[in-house]
């Protein structure tokens, strides 16, 4: 049953060295605060799963926490490349990492299959695409009814998924709205799920009945971290800090600059520092 915990404790209780872990968020509601807490606690040998690895996986890879990455787009959205991930893949720095690459359709189907309790996902994909030749986890099956050859990938079942959401009610039910991405599937596919939220409200009685609500019994722990998805955004709370994404390109380009930035902005900070980072973005939301 869900527990409300300080983020430090929620991460410590649910993440272990060697886990496969998804910090999901499709450009929106990215769980940055949870990722930074994982970085502070110094986990090792993680298999990092995410459609769009983004800044937080660039940071975790740059800190040497990942042994493997499973992804479908290893870029800084709208800006360019992820330079710490590149350094690891191209130069093995700070350690070499194993790469398992899919398309968005492949990852989305694999999460959905994980949530559905299936061993694999079947879809019409990868036709003529080079990934099928370099990723042994992309195979094909023949439809028993039509004979059509379809793509098959193993379902994604993370040990633990972290997401950020707008709000929880006092019982621990969670609301996600706006660009809902893959959050629901990533939570339901995982053995354990941890959610950071902007706020806790009394109840969800006046919500539209079809909004994306994750029942409290699907979640292990909730931590209240206002601003916890900065520099991503939380629909209805604060806007995306596009300038921070542009700045990251420069920070991550240099190994020493990266380390200095991580020391000052992650290692020496805490979850409580996120609220101030989004103050200037609240009016724009």
């Amino acid at each position: 049953m869900v527990k409300f915990l300080p983020l430090k404790q929620a991460v410590a209780e649910n993440l272990n060295n060697g886990d496969s872990v998804a910090f999901e968020g499709f450009t929106h509601l990215i769980p940055t605060a949870a990722a930074h807490e994982a970085i502070r606690q110094g986990f090792r040998d993680l298999t990092l799963i995410r459609m769009t690895p983004d800044l937080i996986y660039d940071q975790m890879i740059g800190m040497g926490m990942a042994k493997k990455i499973i992804f479908s787009y290893v870029g800084n959205p709208g800006v360019g490349l992820l330079r710490r991930a590149r350094d690891a893949i191209e130069n093995g720095f700070p350690r070499s990492i194993e790469v398992e690459e899919h398309s968005h359709a492949g990852m989305a189907n694999a999460y959905e299959a994980g949530a559905a309790g299936l061993p694999c996902a079947v879809f019409r994909g990868y036709r003529g695409a080079g990934l099928a030749a370099v990723n042994p986890n992309i195979k094909s099956v023949t439809c028993p009814f039509t004979g059509e050859v379809l793509a098959a990938v193993p379902s994604i079942r993370p040990d633990v998924t972290f997401i950020h959401a707008q709000k929880a009610d006092k019982k621990g039910n969670v609301l996600v709205e706006g660009i809902i991405g893959i959050q629901k599937e990533a939570v339901l596919a995982a053995r354990r799920a941890v959610v950071t939220v902007e706020e806790v409200v009394d109840n969800f009685d006046d919500l539209h009945p079809n909004l994306t609500v994750l029942p409290r019994w699907t979640i292990a722990a909730i931590s209240v971290v206002p601003g916890g998805s900065h520099p991503s955004y939380a629909h209805g709370y604060y806007a995306r800090d596009n300038a921070a994404y542009l700045e990251w390109d420069e920070i991550a380009a240099d190994r020493e600059k990266f380390q200095a930035w991580m020391q000052a902005n992650v290692i020496e900070k805490s979850a409580d520092d996120f609220a101030a980072r989004v103050e200037h973005l609240r009016k724009a939301a």
Binding site: Y73, G75, A85, E90
Partner: peptide, 19 residues
């Protein structure tokens, strides 16, 4: 692919958009 000179972001949605 396995020893890239430059690792680009990758396909994202493109492989299935294209077909």
């Amino acid at each position: 692919y396995f020893h890239p000179k430059t690792r680009l972001p990758g396909g994202g949605g493109a492989p299935e958009i294209a077909t």
